[in-house]
Write a protein that binds this DNA or RNA. Sequence first.
DNA 1: ATTGTATATTCCTTGTAAGGCATATAACAA
DNA 2: TTGTTATATGCCTTACAAGGAATATACAAT
Lengths: 122, 122
Amino acid sequence: MKSIQFLKTISNETKLRLVSLLLENELCVCELEEILLLKQVNISKNLNSLKEASIVGSRKEKQRAFYFLSEEFMKNNFLVEHIRELKLKEETLRKDYEQFLKHEAVKDQSVYVCNIFRKEAN
Amino acid sequence: MKSIQFLKTISNETKLRLVSLLLENELCVCELEEILLLKQVNISKNLNSLKEASIVGSRKEKQRAFYFLSEEFMKNNFLVEHIRELKLKEETLRKDYEQFLKHEAVKDQSVYVCNIFRKEAN
DNA sequence: ATTGTATATTCCTTGTAAGGCATATAACAA
DNA sequence: TTGTTATATGCCTTACAAGGAATATACAAT
């Protein structure tokens, strides 16, 4: 069953965190890397498996790869609403969302460069 | 995350079929066996893992063990609604539901014995 | 006491998912 | 051209879930 594939795929912390963020906006790998503080490889791999499950789509823009939730997935209204609830209930998802907001703020006030946080850290 | 455990556990065909039926009614192992046409061992095992995930509870009545969806699980309104939708959309779940109705009909018109279908088959 | 019914548990095998690590590719920058 | 940034892929290991098969337990019926 396709529906089971959806469930199985998002029932993993990393993937759920990714989907959770993508509910807000399309994002590229390096943004996700900075927000989630996970290694690029894992993000790429997990995004890829989300893509194989038709949960996300992607588009290339120069070197960047932007990922977004698929229409097909978004049709599952109740499941989507369930995830929105988890974002309020689950600590990890809440914190990710905070990080996302910080990230968006920085993006707004300056010319965005992908590794901005990493540069500040050095 | 507990919520992930819920998702992970129900994202398996057998377990989803079980949960799907238990949305209708509490049922005992042998009833589930007859409706789903699965081996008793698998049903017991899967029910047990649903129980470990706090998705179902159980009560003993003589030799029978009746299983029902936990309050905790039922609080996830959107997730529950999602499953109800899957019951309409997914062939397997629809057929299971038909079998369930047949089973209920038999139960109503006679003194119920657990292996009634099996006896007819011989 | 013995048989039959209902359910649970244990052992075993197989499949698969997830992340680590190294490396590949692709685009752009200098 | 060479270096750097952004992303993807391949190989390996570990962990764990799922079902088969056999057996155990628990209670009921006779």
